[in-house]
């Protein structure tokens, strides 16, 4: 698949599945961990699978299980988990220029995770209008199924899996930074965008290392956007 040119081999949904395969390296090990932790926290296998199927948001699922197991008030559990997902508010609007008025897009928004957004943001503009819904369906359904299946695997046999193949959970998740890297690197085609992307990534690394993984993405993205505006205004003022 080219990130620069418009190419479609086979049907759109097959291409969507193909493009989403790298996500599995990140999704499945994390889903297995979630399944294991959820069962250990007192949820049944079925409840664990339903949590993954319906909430379908990694960080907030871990928080939900941890807070519920610790006996936190449920209203607080609901607020905190939704706050973690608040960053998703910018995803739909960013993709909307590339989506047509088909009503099928409405249920498909359930699959709009961080990774699917990043993938769709890079791929949808390259695809013909009529191929986009098929492509998105293939990519989003594969990602969702892998998350639910990984959760089930973790809930049923997570303990044994992590003991037998401990490195799987260490190595495969590297597919995620590699994926984000190839999605964002074509954007670094001028100095302004290169500096913006660089700052966003560095701030995110620092915040995550300081122990703020949940606010790292929105704060880092906003700091990058502030730099973008500052440099752009400076350029405009300098040119006057």
């Amino acid at each position: 698949m080219s990130t620069a040119t418009q190419t479609l081999t086979g049907t759109p949904w097959k291409q969507g599945i193909k493009d989403a395969i790298p996500l599995l390296g990140g999704y499945i090990p994390v889903a297995i961990s979630f399944g294991l932790i959820s069962v250990q926290s007192g949820f049944s296998v079925l409840e664990t699978i339903l949590i993954s199927a319906f909430i379908y948001a990694g960080a907030s699922q871990f928080l939900f299980v941890a807070m519920a197991a610790s006996g936190a008030p449920l209203w607080l559990v609901v607020i905190m988990t939704l706050l973690i997902n608040a960053r998703h508010v910018v995803y739909g609007p960013n993709l909307s220029p590339y989506l047509n008025h088909d009503k099928k897009w409405l249920p498909l928004m359930h699959g709009l995770t961080d990774q699917i957004f990043a993938l769709a943001h890079a791929r949808l503009p390259q695809l013909p209008d009529q191929a986009r819904i098929g492509w998105y369906t293939g990519a989003a359904v594969l990602a969702w199924l892998s998350w639910v299946a990984g959760t089930a695997l973790g809930a049923i046999a997570g303990d044994e899996l992590t003991q037998r193949w401990p490195l799987i959970s260490d190595i495969l998740p590297f597919a995620l930074p590699a994926l984000f890297f190839v999605l964002i690197i074509p954007r670094c085609n001028n100095c302004l965008w290169s500096m913006t992307i660089f700052l966003s990534a560095v701030v995110a690394v620092i915040l995550k290392m300081l122990g703020y993984p949940n606010v790292a993405i929105p704060l880092a993205a906003m700091s990058g956007a502030v730099l973008f505006y500052a440099l752009k205004n400076q350029r405009i003022l300098g040119g006057e």
Partner: peptide, 20 residues
């Protein structure tokens, strides 16, 4: 909004880069 899209992806790259 068009700026926030790519910076969100850059931030996801940053957070996913930090090893376990």
């Amino acid at each position: 909004l068009t700026i926030l899209g790519p910076t969100m992806i850059a931030a996801m790259f940053g957070t996913s880069l930090v090893p376990t």
